[in-house]
Amino acid sequence: MGKTASAEELTELDMFLEQFPDYKKTYNVTNALKGNGTEATETKPEEINGNLEEIWNRIKNLNENSANDTKIKPMFRWQWVAAAVLVLVTTGVLFYNRAAQQDTLTVENILHEIHVPYGKTEKLKLPDGTQVTLNAGSTFSYPEAFEKNSRDVSLTGEGFFEVTKNSKRPFLVHTARLVVKVLGTVFNVKAYNNDKTVETTLLKGKVQVELKNNPEKKIILLPNEKLIVINNREPQSVKPKEGKIEYQVTELPDVKPNEVKETAWVDNRILFTNEMFEDVAAQIERKYNVQVVFEDRALRTEQISGLLDKETLKEALGIIELTTPFNFRVDGQTVYLSKKDK
């Protein structure tokens, strides 16, 4: 337990502070730092730090400067009081700086990273109220608290976003190939590193997409539009060759909301229409946590259609087999596909 000053010592301290106004000011700042005043909001810690050395030098020279002052008691006592003030100020400044650093770490530097394994999806709510659903095989990161000017998150994989509207703080989804900027909307981003394309599908609102290797190009999407970007995985500094199609914007079919194939995964379904078997196989890998191996390369480009919902893996393969003849065998977590002999 700390020692409490006597009434006489407090009186002497008041006398000392009246004799030396500089010390009185720093003493008041110390009280403010401890929550006993408002001066801490007016005086920056660096200003206090700048005066500490000067104050300490003046304490050491008190005997010389006050040898003939008969109004002050013996100098060793004043030196003790002055040193005590200096210790209080120094302690207050260190406490203030440490608290400020901890606050900065909490607000700006803590980053949450979510890894979703194959066979799973995950839902979460961000600090601003935005709802995010993450597909299997996705990695998503976001800060403990968003900055004042923007709300930045990073995604590798696939995410469905329902963004809380805030016109002053745009919401930005960063992927390896592009950045999606929104104010408040509902959209899906599919950005797996190994997929042939990166897709942004807008259901409600309005988004602006910026390509990482072509930032001056701003692509605006309206509801029921999808942006498809070729995922060639070239260095971001390398621009596409002239005449090469890097992206395209398509319009979604006029279907019911629960029949939009781009967001069917949110309900743990796979909906595909005239898609290559190898692209559907990538979705099967994520949904069922397996690896698909094509033993016949020609089978990769077969066009298939169907809907997979609550079926088991073998049931799902059986449904595809009804329209596209092939053989399959399951060995642990690996599925082998081969062409069926006629």
Rank of each mutant, 00 (worst) to 15 (best):
V173L: 11
K239H: 12
S154V: 02
I320K: 07
V238K: 08
I219F: 02
S237F: 12
V87M: 01
S305V: 06
E315I: 03
W265V: 05
L252M: 09
Q303D: 13
I304H: 06
E39C: 11
A84F: 01
G129T: 10
K342Y: 06
V260Q: 06
K25S: 07
L155F: 05
L134Q: 02
G332F: 02
W80V: 10
W80M: 12
K25G: 03
K310M: 08
R169K: 13
N289G: 15
E259T: 04
L10Y: 04
K261Q: 11
G332N: 14
V81E: 00
F277V: 12
V107M: 07
G37S: 03
S154T: 09
R169A: 15
G50L: 09
Q248G: 05
A40L: 11
L155T: 03
G37F: 02
G184V: 01
V85Q: 00
W265P: 06
P143L: 10
K168Y: 11
D152H: 05
R77T: 14
Y192M: 12
G119V: 00
T4Q: 13
K287V: 05
Y336S: 08
L52I: 13
E242S: 10
E275I: 02
K190V: 08
Y27G: 01
K340F: 05
P170N: 11
N51F: 10
E147D: 09
K218M: 12
S141N: 12
K244F: 09
Y336P: 15
E251Y: 14
V255W: 15
Y27D: 08
G35D: 15
W56H: 15
W265A: 00
T156S: 15
R169H: 12
Y23I: 07
D254I: 00
K241I: 10
K206N: 07
